[in-house]
Amino acid sequence: MRSVRSRADRALLVVRYVVLGVLAVLFLLPFYVIVRNAFASSKLIAAAQWNWLPDRWNFANITELFTNSDVEMGASLWHSAVMAVVQTALTVVVALLAGYALARHTHRVARLLSALTIFTLMVPAAVTFIPTFVMTSALGWIDTFRGLIVPGMFSAFATYMFRQSFLGFPRELEEAALIDGANPWRTFWQVVVPNSMGIVGAIGTITFIGSWNAFLWPMLVTRTGTRTVQVTLSQFMTSQLVNYPELFAGALVAVIPVLVVFLFLQRYLVQGVETTGLR
């Protein structure tokens, strides 16, 4: 009886692996198409007949991105890196402090501020988009890193997530530090934050990926001085034609930093997805 059950279990396990394997291949297929098209000719990409392999491994598509002065891919990658790294750092710091304050203060004002923070999450971004843009312009921040970064560094989502995390943080650790003579500021940075690196990593990873992939906001506030890589990629799609080889080559280059971040911080990303319920 036991052997029958174990055979059934093994069969079920095999079926599960096969299904998961097939699904993994399906999900990876678009990424494979990016790689194939990044090195293929325009003719092959647009061919009526599907081909699994590129007609040639044409690295010129990649080199053209960096040698074409009109594209400015190198500068765009730099602008995206500055935006993503600085915005992530500032978002995490601001949200950490705000989240901690909202978690530790329980009076009426703090509860009201918590409720308002949650309320802003329910306002569609499209509603605040144009007013934010008008304010950014009024400050003279068009085509500057300030315009790219500052409006996006106040995240109600991150604040809320940190608040929820700190609500479950053991107060005993903080009290022990206070007894040892640490003030609240030192207790926060030397006790609370080091013991909350999981949620910091998760929020940081999610913020970085969102910032790197942002399109609409950079499209509006950048001109030529701070154009990000996602806006640069849109140059290959015009109303008259789509330059597929350079578009896919650019997409391949643009996805590499996110891939690197994912490889190093995937543990935190998974934790973030589990914690936040993000898809």
Partner: peptide, 20 residues
């Protein structure tokens, strides 16, 4: 001359609301 990449039809009406 500014050669505007991306969604030009969205960018122009938005820009006309600002001082840029």
């Amino acid at each position: 001359v500014t050669w505007y990449a991306g969604n030009y039809d969205t960018a122009v009406p938005a820009a006309l609301l600002t001082n840029s």
